[in-house]
Design a protein around this nucleic acid. Structure first.
Lengths: 166, 166
DNA sequence: TATTGTTATACTCTATAACTATA
DNA sequence: TATAGTTATAGAGTATAACAATA
């Protein structure tokens, strides 16, 4: 179908899988399942497709300034600031003046924000668990490790336990 | 860090990797590399982040109506129609009246559109190849197969060679 | 003068509503 | 009446520009 080469056929399969994951239709479906689009409950007030990367990113990198967070999640400072305001209004995030630099504001999750992120992480992990075939434990473990490595090489972002959810 | 369970730690790693892939910052970077944001060349006229899913989806599922294509890629008919118009103006796509139903329009890639999609596919595969560690061939092959299966389970979309790029 | 955070404005993409033609 | 396609309008999200405060 294409020219051959070292591992070209495997690369085609991997590229197809990555493409499917990133495809808008599947991405949105995943977000909906994660953020509570399935039933009447589930949804957390203040957290939607726009604010989720902000609260998740803040949980991943810890308390930081607006600019640092914006860089990490690939948004403009102004957008991160507005989403942070929404999360603050929902009681999931708090702003503190930075002691070092009075220009800066440190963003920090509230205890309720921490609980919210933890719940979303667990839900995403459950979705993954449900999608994993019935492999022997070693095979699952190797797959997880290998996927983390490939994604790391592809994005430059480490993918480790308890970090880097979407 | 979280409650344990069958394969919970592995699920955390996998969830982290998937989250990283879907994260806007990394997704956009991948799209930019694919669509020619790296140098002066590379970019194909008429193909950008908005139209790429349309032309790629059309290549994946073959000639079809606007509605069918829109469903496949997760867009509204109206949006797919407008993007198709842009691709048509760029000479990558052609509209034909459907012989069966005069209400329908069949979308089909032009030869230039086919070449364009093939070039983008190859470029994505090259990105994947560059991100693959120096594994023994069997390990790469198994990883590709396993990833395809997990993504299929997670999205309901098959990921096979030559299909389903982002 | 440069930088942080924020607010005001404009742009892009997508979805809903309205319209035409055909079934 | 219902459906396919398109066009017109509105909504959500993001980026650029402008401002105030601090370095």
């Amino acid at each position: 179908m294409s020219q051959d080469g070292p591992g070209r056929a495997d690369a085609q399969v991997i590229a197809g899988a990555i493409g499917a994951l990133v495809l808008r239709a599947n991405r949105m479906h995943l977000y909906d399942e994660l953020l509570g689009g399935h039933g009447g409950d589930g949804g957390v007030a203040g957290v939607d497709r726009a604010t989720y990367p902000v609260i998740s990113g803040l949980a991943r990198i810890g308390p930081c300034t607006t600019s640092e967070l914006a860089d990490q999640i690939g948004l403009d400072r102004t957008v991160a600031s507005r989403h942070a305001t929404r999360l603050q209004q929902a009681g999931l995030l708090a702003r503190q003046p930075s002691p070092d630099d009075l220009r800066s504001t440190v963003l920090r999750l509230t205890p309720e924000g921490e609980r919210c992120v933890q719940a979303l992480r667990t839900r995403l992990e459950d979705l993954v668990l449900a999608a994993l075939p019935d492999w022997p434990p070693e095979r699952t473990h190797r797959f997880a490790h290998d996927l983390g490595q490939v994604v790391h090489n592809l994005t430059g972002v480490a993918a480790e336990p308890g970090h880097d959810h979407p």
